[in-house]
Design a protein around this nucleic acid. Structure first.
Lengths: 342, 342
DNA sequence: CTGAAAGCGCTTACAG
DNA sequence: CTGAAAGCGCTTACAG
């Protein structure tokens, strides 16, 4: 019934547009139009083609379409982690913005590695993406070159570029770090430590904000900073708390660059019988789900991750369509969540 | 310098294999072979082609290759959630297994919705994937049809199929539910509640295991079951704890179908001054990172998520290559983590 | 080990 | 509103 008539040597056995056209009694390109641009075709014809499609169980070959039209309808998204809820939220926003439009999203997990990012980008560029969504502003030389020679629009997420020439959607990581530290200072804490992991771009900027605030208050002390390169986890937070407490026992508050770290530090305090925040205040960053619920609840910075993904995708889509976007540098802000732990 | 000579109307300006071949002074198909199957070509020729590739900055067009070779090197993965760490771990395993082989992974988030799953599968099938990785065993009629007519190999993840005809990699959800309930019975609990969310296939099987264990012990009471359709979150766990306690105040233990729920329930107990496990034992499922660290730590079932993804991908890859896999039904088991909360 | 021709399944101009 | 021809950039048999 739905057997195609082709008998050439390389025929795939797949139902093609030509089969649909033959069944409907029209040319292939008329069939193509009836499917892709139904408005440009008479209702009767559309109905006939639709029926042929249904009877034959025709599935358009996206690969052939991409090759012929030079439009892949593919967007590449590179995130540094999938185990971090921050980036799965970003992805959710991207998917909601792009999927209604028929885009296919190629997700690459760079695991915070430049080498991985280069490799993934090299592979994904082979799919001729219509645009690229990147995490952060700083990338390796090789990545920058690949991006440039691809001549595809790129939007950076989670931070704000210095110039509007680089499209970016996010918020000021530095200012967020500053705001949190100011909050602790205003509460009267003076020996405020910083606990950082991953040593990525965004963590470093939060650290800059922390330093600036402490400098202004005249209470900066580099010994209060603990920074490691390991991925940020609860277990690491627990461990780093121990380290900080033995290095600087007079520390009265800790700004953790991530909620995981803060949670781990608080759990560790509970095990050691250290009262939070009475003996030691602890705050985090990102407002992950556990933070609002645990006891004590975690003071943190809520970040607009879903919206970052959504707005970045919208911006990219506009540029792909050749529109001039209202802004190429979109600041979505952040919110300090003052809770029990600090 | 690297300007292609093509001047036909639809030329994309992109460097093509023909450009590389011309530069190297060989035919296009020789160039193609030098790139894809370097072993079948003399070293001198390979070097010449490689140099032309480098000088021109040639990036192979994966789309054209897919069309010509009828091999897309695309694997479709459908998961019900990306915010659930369970599935991001599964994805990590899949990526580790597939990316070294040059596969491109198309990730679809069905959000536990049949309609979404149908839509995503319909779209992704247009990319002629070489294989498909699915979560769970039960799918809508439409999905089953799409899968059948695609004639692509499919591996189901996270559960075990009844027959080896359906390829599956996971563990017995029912047995895991049974094991956890038996553990609680052995500890002396008799009024054991079940708290479930999402009402998905796997939750229902855990519930079956719970019922079987309680039935055997002669202490089953349907009033102790609370099951809702909302997504499983910490907030929901907190809320459901309240509901269970007012409905069945004599409940002495709760088996939560998910760690989020268990965590939320425990946090809520802490707020209400209910001692866990002394007054109420609570256990979870999946062993998410917070569970080992919070106080009390959460008794739960550790599930081999990463390995499920990894092994499922390996199995699929073997089948795609036409190999006969050692087994088409792979049981990876689970581990009861007895901790403080129950 | 190397190559000329045909084809993968679709869409893009260009006419009517 | 509809169609025949050419082409997107690669690979597959088939010869040499």
């Amino acid at each position: 019934m739905s057997k195609p008539q082709t008998s050439r040597s390389r025929a795939s056995g797949r139902v093609t547009l030509a089969d649909v056209a033959a069944k409907a009694g029209v040319g292939t390109m008329t069939a193509s139009r009836a499917i892709s641009q139904p408005d440009m075709v008479s209702a009767a014809l559309r109905a006939r083609v639709d029926q042929a499609v249904a009877e034959l169980g025709y599935v358009p070959n996206r690969v052939a379409r991409a090759l012929a039209s030079a439009q892949s309808k593919v967007i590449v998204v590179l995130v540094p982690s999938l185990s971090n809820a921050v980036f799965t939220d970003v992805l959710a926003g991207i998917q909601d913005a792009l999927e209604p439009d028929g885009y296919q999203i190629l997700i690459g997990n760079t695991r915070y590695s430049d080498a991985e990012e280069e490799k993934l980008l090299g592979t994904y560029l082979q799919s001729s993406p219509d645009g690229i969504l990147l995490s952060g502003l700083t990338h390796s030389k090789r990545v920058t070159e690949l991006l440039a020679s691809s001549r595809r629009p790129v939007v950076s997420m989670m931070d704000l570029a210095g110039s509007p020439d680089t499209m970016s959607v996010g918020f000021s990581q530095l200012q967020a770090g500053y705001t949190m530290t100011r909050y602790l200072l205003d509460k009267g804490y003076r020996r405020i430590g910083f606990m950082g992991a991953q040593r990525d771009e965004r963590t470093l900027k939060r650290l800059d904000g922390y330093r600036r605030a402490l400098d202004e208050a005249g209470v900066y002390d580099s010994r209060l900073e603990t920074m490691v390169s390991d991925p940020s986890t609860i277990a690491l937070g627990a461990e780093l708390l121990g380290r900080m407490l033995s290095a600087t026992p007079d520390c009265d508050a800790i700004f953790c660059c991530n909620d995981d770290l803060a949670q781990g530090a608080i759990f560790q305090c509970q095990r050691r019988g250290i009262a939070v925040p009475r003996q030691l205040a602890i705050c985090g960053f990102n407002d992950l789900p556990v933070s609002a619920w645990m006891n004590p609840s975690v003071t943190t910075i809520a970040t607009p991750r879903y919206r970052v993904g959504f707005e970045a995708a919208q911006l990219l889509r506009a540029v792909i369509r050749g529109e001039k976007p209202p802004a190429t540098r979109v600041d979505l802000g952040f919110t300090l969540m003052a809770r029990e732990s600090a």
